[in-house]
Amino acid sequence: MPLPASGMNYTGSVNTVTLGGGRRKTTVTVGGAKTVPYGGPRAACGHRPAIAIDVLDAPPEGWPAPLAEAYAGVLGDPAAWARKAVEEFGADLVCVKFDGVHPDKGNLGADHAVDVTRRVLDAVGVPLVLWGCDNAEKDNAVMPKISEAAKGEKVLLGTVTQDNYKNLTALALADGHFLIAEAPLDINIAKQVNILVSDMGFPLERLVMYQTTGALGYGMEYAYSIQERERLAALGSDKLMAAPLICDVGTEAWGAKEARATSEQAPQWGDAARRGPAWEAVTAVTLLQSGVDILRMRHPTAVATVRRYLDRLWGTKA
């Protein structure tokens, strides 16, 4: 009697997404896993996760010193900031986050957003993630211009939600971009957003899912378990849940008081210059275990730590 095979045979896989086109000098391919994260044969693990470094369209307010110091001199210049992220810190992708157009954070207009988009596209050769301000009304006004300015570059546009998806989906379809489908830590809504977007004729193969992200100590386990379940759904051939995943580690980790508090405010927690990056790096590597494919990150030390971790895990250099 033969020994029964003990391995799990999954029938499905995570979609493979390749970002970057047009004038991009590199492309980034993520997804493709046919097994649980780091749980099966090497050949089934798909593509190595990618790191996107955040570049803000306008100088950030209230960034803790370790973060602000890492980008000293470029915080008001998105193009220089993007170059630094790629050339010095080795970003696979640049994520331009348009906080400055938010009505409460500067209320800058579409002209500004287009200008930033063009300058960053000119400054770096890596693929871009272009992420709105998370105010539906303003995003609907500004994102069409951003999408058009990046036409043909196969960027990752974000985000569409259950309540606001038609505009951006139509744009991404027309301009050849990829889309981030967002759900508020809710796997059922995540599936619904994907269905809605797909109903508009947008290919599921051009979607990346964003479950919102919790940092270490701030609900990371919710994001973790949902992402874990999404991976299992993809492996079980649920085509509606097979998109790769993106996490916003930088924003969330640096929102935690454990990362933000200065050495003077919390001397018992150790040196703030090391604590913040550590908080970000631990959040990132933990979420990697749940199957995330693209990490949005901020601090160069955290980025370097996670990259070393990925190098060891994958036995390759990015």
Partner: peptide, 13 residues
């Protein structure tokens, strides 16, 4: 996985 369109999702599979 539940979604509001779960019947449609099933039928499209």
């Amino acid at each position: 996985i539940y979604s509001d369109s779960f019947v449609k999702a099933y039928r499209s599979t």
